[in-house]
Design a protein around this nucleic acid. Sequence first.
RNA 1: GCCGAGAUGGUGGAAUGGCAGACACGCUAGCUUGAGGGGCUAGUGAACUUUAUCGUUCGUGAGAGUUCAAAUCUCUCUCUCGGCACCA
Length: 815
Amino acid sequence: MIEKYNPPEIEAKWQKRWAETSLYNVNNDSSTPKWYALTMFPYTSGDLHIGHWYAMAPADVYARFKRMQGYNVLHPIGFDAFGFPAENAAIKRGIHPKKWTLSNVDNMRRQLKSIGAVYDWSREIITCLPEYYKWTQWFFLKMWQAGLAYRAKAPVNWCPNCQAVLANEQVVGGGCWRCETPVIHRDLEQWFFRITKYADELMQHEGLDWPERIKTMQSNWVGRSEGMEISFLIDCPGAEEKEIRVFTTRPDTVFGASFIVLAPEHPLVQKITTAEKKADVEAYIDKARHSNEIERLSTDREKDGVFTGTYAINRLNGAKIPIWIADYVLVSYGTGAVMAVPAHDERDFAFAQRYGLPVKVVVSPFGWDGSALKEAYVETGLIVNSENFDGLESDIAKEQISAHIEQQDWGKRMVRYKLRDWLVSRQRYWGAPIPVVYCKKCGIVPVPEEALPVLLPDEAEFKPTGESPLKNNPSFLSTSCPSCGAPAERETDTMDTFMCSSWYFLRYINPHHDKGAFEPEMIKKWMPVDIYTGGAEHAVMHLFYSRFFIKALRDMGLIDFGEPFLRLFNQGTVTKDHQKMSKSKGNVVNPDEYVSELGADTVRAYLMFLGPWEQGGDWDDSGIYGLSRWLGRIWNLAQNEYKELPGGISASATKDLIRITHQTIRRVSEDIDRMRFNTMISALMEFSNYLSKIHEAGSVAVAEYFQALTVLLRLLAPTAPHFTEEVWARLNHPYSIHEQKWPEYDPALALDEVIPLVVQVNGKVRERLLVPIGITEHEAKRLALESHKVRIFVDGKELGQVVYVANKLINLVTK
RNA sequence: GCCGAGAUGGUGGAAUGGCAGACACGCUAGCUUGAGGGGCUAGUGAACUUUAUCGUUCGUGAGAGUUCAAAUCUCUCUCUCGGCACCA
């Protein structure tokens, strides 16, 4: 009688043994080819839920697969530990963020260990510890030295709930990415990184094996558009400003400009508004300032604006057109001013309709009879009402008008981007302090590298005041100027958490290196990351920032590559009752109880069996016992005595077994490579079902049977690491199965000798014939016509075309 | 509004031009006569046919098309999910 499969016992046993024997410790000096399999590190929010397992378990299977294939695999784990939730917990519950975070780390580490992954725990990193954030600060200094960090006063996104600024990437649909509170604009002096310098490069994804949709999202985020800045004269003799510069992508429509619109925040507004319009304009600006981003960006809202009282002159035709202000024009894009061409722009058309402004057609729609337009015509066409350019095709006119404007020095062709610089400062405590000192005499002075880290003090008052709590900490605040030694003040803002995660994958390589953020030779050896897996929600945040960091480091000469992640794979999300899991909804599924009852191996296998990894799915545990039963069956199969058939073994059964074994190796290997873990498990199930039939029949030799069984165990090892280790040991194989080579298949042995040939008549299946592989068309046709079932449909009819697909199908078409 | 992905049995899904429903879950029946989310065996898309269980027809969101052959390719539409959204 064999013992029952008891997952909790064997899982604890092997996790301990693996740790004691340092089975998964990664060797930087190994001469075997490297494979860097990175999975996005979790944020320290409290508990791992089933979604984390969904991200981690298949990633681990892939890493184990590569390991068994002979690669030196780095598959590290760590914790993204700075950020708002820790501080909010402090405000709400009076727990210090550090205490809250580190206790979460302890809990999450315990949970992560229960997965049974190949993580090398000696490489764990925690971003909120000084030994890590010292180097985050060092990167800030590098950015400063490279001219990529600057401080500026600008209209910024402000989350009234978080009481802090947000980067553009962190504004989702006009709301805060974390709490969905509508964002408002404020003029504040903040730190920025010049990510726009890399706008063009960030749109390029050459040589990257990334999902199409992430590449598209990033390119759209950069939002490159080619156009022209054109100068209009201000028709106001005494004014100090003489011109307004607008940005347009349609220079071909410049003769159709019937008014100018400035963003309410545009600096010219104050200078050109006439005395009688001043009150209206002020009121409008005030209203615009107080509306939040969601209201302002809502496209179905009726466009409104006010006239400034002043006119502009279109230099191309001398037309005198009114200057308006309206909040549908954004101060942060282009020049913050547009020439409105209502005939050929939907927004301008709507605005002109509302205020009775003229609509002048300059690109004639096909078959146009000269009547008033019902909507803006935005397509190409023949140019009209444009003096010398009349009759030209609009694409050609665009070129010629642009050239003309440049020749007259009235404007310049240029490229504009939607992308803005990355705002990195946060008015918060729980982050890495920005390593900068303000001196009355010397101005902004970076903290010298040898003085890092600028330690985050433990004592702080947590009040959501909109200012960093560090402002109220005198011992942190007051310091001396690193340059002149005079009394000075420290920067009290901390860095955006996305700074920490923009380089963490470099730190895993030398997590304890204290002479620098990383060792260049080791970076050369391990980077770039071969496969990165994680959620798609980071498309224009973490993934985008990391690419920027790597490109900036490359240009500083610190590394010699420009892309961090060669292959990217996004797993889907696990929902509960078709809703996103969240603590507030109370629908978070905790994996712990499943693990303690059924074992990590069953939970791993079940998650992968749910469906394609990139698709995600709704959590429903009704099928989980099926996976647990399956492992139980293999458990029994492997340990029950195998007896050969009393009458002797069958040669054909042996041949079949060998063929099916090799076919299974091929299917499983290809499925893991394609990240199709659900079909990988199906293939393993079919194989184990087949083996149990053999076991019952006893139709192959003992040696052949056990040979096939060890293949099954090795193919299953990445999916069920504890289970296979235990069975492996019980079959008296040497420790450890995870040091075994991945089975290789022989294509010749995987080949079928006899195949079922599908016989169709007029495209309908009428017969299946077992035929030897490689049969000729002639022979196949002969056999097909011998079949009764086929004859029923063919007899008495004239045979026409015969379609023959070798080793698959023959289709007989009657006339 | 724009872009992307998707829609297949009671359920999760498989099949990427060539046998629709692999592999599971669930359900039904039987066996295992101590119960168990237990084990094993068989069945399980729908309709028709059946005193010849061998078959026939239909069937992959809806409609059209291409093809000897369509879940798969093309077009139109409906719905679901995700992203972007006044970027001039």
